[in-house]
Amino acid sequence: MLHIKCPHCGLRSQNEFSYGGDASVKRPELNKEVSDKDWDNFVYLRKSPIGKHLELWQHISGCRQWIKVERDTLTHEIFKTLKANEEV
């Protein structure tokens, strides 16, 4: 079980969090033309990298904040955790 440092609450066990996928995905802006391909990429296509991955987690049984976690997908090492509005 991972040990994740919530930037708001501190170090907590994984079972307080829920996973939210790739944090680098940007939703296309509202009311803008989006090509089929771009939309398809946004909705369905995700990279599955070995190694460093910036991902979203929500501290669902805690402060309920969505946070960013930079994690190694192979070793589970967590390099950094960030608030939703922070960039790596």
Binding site: G20, R27, R64, A84
Partner: peptide
């Protein structure tokens, strides 16, 4: 609730 929080915190802060 999680869905709303997602958009409020990450997409349209």
């Amino acid at each position: 609730l999680s869905h709303l929080e997602y958009y409020l915190q990450l997409v349209w802060p």
